[in-house]
Design a protein around this nucleic acid. Structure first.
Lengths: 130, 130
DNA sequence: ACTTCAAATGAAAATAAATTTCAATTAGTT
DNA sequence: AACTAATTGAAATTTATTTTCATTTGAAGT
């Protein structure tokens, strides 16, 4: 289970595995790319400030990814590598696994830039809006 | 010149080509992916509210693109198609022209999703930070 | 040029989002 | 069980963005 692993990562790095932190992690686990609001709804007993701080911590630890898709930040578990499909009409977000990047073209495109990660967003109209 | 074209687009859509709007457009033209602060510095006589409204308008008209790369919104002229290289250390942003997407893999990846545009961001460490 | 009027501007106020402060609490040692 | 540095959360603060509304203005028509 991911929570066990998270506890290990936290303790290993000298952070306490508090119930609030685990609650936030559980909340994020419930659904990908949630907004602050969604997360808070799923752990209403955790104070606002603690949610903010926990999201920062979990991001630092690499357990959670912060997304900037417009309309404010969203968060998701950093498990698999995937990308996002965003409907410009209704704002819904979905994922797709197949990475459409041609990695061959990445490394040499800028001199001296050390690539660590990448993101791809595809914008358009989802099936229900079309 | 791009300002002429912008005036045409605005008038053609029933909007007035005011000096404030042109000042904001000039400000954006000075440098790609600027933050709100950078834009305001380049057109200090335009009121804050007008800058916000103008950015919205120019985005709607397709003359300007709003970017969400973290650390708040940035804006750039929507001229050429390009992507961004973001340094996670110093936060600097640069562009690269060559699109690393394998477009073949895009269309069929989700049933019923009508693709309109896409963005690619590459994160890592820039030459000066490494 | 002059008039007209809907569109646009901007100062002030309101709202929203995120951060800081700090006293009280608690997880994980010893 | 006691200790202590880390953590929490309520309140206050800061920062970002939007709304309101009285005044101004671009540009269309004379």
């Amino acid at each position: 289970m991911k929570v066990e692993r998270a506890v290990g990562v936290m303790r290993g790095r000298g952070y306490k595995a508090t119930p609030q932190r685990l609650a936030v992690l559980e909340a994020i686990s419930a659904e990908q790319h949630q907004s602050m609001e969604g997360i808070r709804d799923r752990c209403p007993d955790v104070g606002l400030v603690t949610v903010y701080r926990t999201l920062d911590l979990l991001s630092e630890l690499g357990l959670v990814r912060r997304l900037d898709l417009g309309e404010g930040p969203r968060y998701e578990l950093a498990e698999d590598h995937h990308h996002h499909l965003i409907c410009e009409d209704c704002g819904s977000v979905s994922e797709f696994e197949q990475c459409p990047l041609d990695l061959e073209r990445l490394p040499q495109m800028e001199k001296g830039f050390q690539v660590k990660s990448h993101s791809v967003e595809v914008y358009g109209r989802c099936a229900s809006c079309a």
